[in-house]
Amino acid sequence: MIYEIRHLTRYSYGAIVELTTGVLRLAPRSGDGQEVQRFSIVTDPVSQPLTERLDPFGNRVTSLRIEKPHRQLSITASSRVRVNRTPPPTRSPAWETVGAEAIAMTSLDADCQAIALYPSRRVALFDGATAYAKQSFGPHRPIFDAASELARRIRSDFTYDPEATEVNTPAAEAFDRRRGVCQDFAHIMIAAVRGIALPALYVSGYIRTLPPPGKERLEGADATHAWVSVWCGAPLGWRDFDPTNATSIQNDHIVVARGRDYSDVSPIESMVLSSGRHRLEVEVDVIPV
């Protein structure tokens, strides 16, 4: 499957902004069945020349600086991505074997699983999540089967509610409420998996949404999304699970960035020299071509 992706972010400010600086994580990743064929960023007002680097997790990070005074700012990221992932595995090692392998790892590469074993800025370990994970990770159970069941249970036991949480809501609080959005469900699953000493990462990206039967697709109606990557041992590597939709990911998901939690992968982090309030609008189109 080949997708054309358009991600528009628009800020409207209550006062003149003299300076905007920031970092963007909007470029999809290549690898693991995904190939980026084209990527570009356009800003209005025009930024100083954009610079790009790889962060410690292998994500493409773009830096911008806008020195022209402005009351509005738009950032449009356009991508063309081919996705052709392998089918889910039919066999996987026992989760205890994978945990022992992860603890023994000595690599410091960007893809090293050791960094995904421990609490992070937005994902603290807590007893409720650990106990919740243990219901799926029984003795000697294959890790892929157990992680798949955990994702399905989160989808079944938790209610998707955009009003229930905010971007800074701790995973333990969302867990107690049994409500939240994809970010919360990803953080909860990560806390659960790390609580039984298995590596798990946060993944940001896009998911293609299908209109209801008989309805036309609405422009800008697709969404940014978040899910979880679990280390399933050396033969399988990282495998991704979507607890919001109770599935392992296939060709409807497009990966943008990976990190320990949302703090490592937020699409836009910026600083503005101004005063007053601002309004944020986001539109996403994921179009199969």
Rank of each mutant, 00 (worst) to 15 (best):
T51S: 15
D55Y: 12
S40G: 12
P56T: 12
T21F: 05
V46T: 08
I41F: 07
S63G: 08
I41G: 07
E35T: 14
G33D: 00
G22F: 05
S47Q: 03
S40Q: 15
P45M: 12
S47W: 02
R60N: 11
E52T: 15
S47I: 09
V61H: 00
E52R: 13
P28F: 09
S30K: 10
G58L: 13
P49L: 11
G33E: 00
P28S: 08
L64M: 14
R38W: 07
D32I: 03
S63R: 12
D32Q: 11
A27P: 00
N59G: 08
D32L: 05
R25M: 14
R25T: 12
L50V: 06
N59Y: 04
R53F: 06
S30E: 04
L54C: 02
L24T: 02
E35R: 14
D44A: 10
D55K: 09
F57V: 07
E52G: 09
S30M: 07
R25P: 00
T20L: 05
R53T: 13
L24Y: 03
P56R: 09
S30Q: 09
P49S: 10
P49V: 10
L24W: 03
F57C: 07
I41D: 02
R60Y: 06
F39H: 15
S63I: 02
L24D: 03
D44M: 14
R29K: 12
G58P: 03
R53Q: 11
R38P: 01
T21Q: 12
V46L: 13
E52Q: 15
G58K: 08
P45K: 00
F39M: 07
R38A: 15
F57E: 00
V36D: 01
S47H: 05
L64G: 01
T43R: 06
T21R: 14
Q48R: 13
T43G: 01
S40Y: 03
S63A: 15
S63K: 05
L50E: 05
I41E: 03
P45C: 09
P28A: 08
Q48A: 14
L24H: 01
T62G: 02
S47R: 01
V42A: 11
Q48Y: 03
T43E: 00
G31I: 09
L26A: 08
T43M: 14
D32C: 04
S47L: 08
G31H: 09
D44I: 14
G33Y: 00
A27W: 06
R53L: 08
A27N: 09
S40V: 06
V42S: 04
Q37L: 15
R53N: 05
Q34K: 03
R53K: 13
P56H: 08
R25S: 10
L24P: 00
S47A: 15
V23I: 15
I41T: 05
E35A: 14
L64P: 00
T43V: 06
V36Y: 04
D55Q: 09
A27Y: 08
V23H: 05
V23L: 11
P49F: 11
A27F: 04
T62S: 11
A27I: 07
Q48E: 15
L54Q: 07
F57R: 00
L24V: 05
R25G: 06
L54M: 07
R53H: 09
N59W: 10
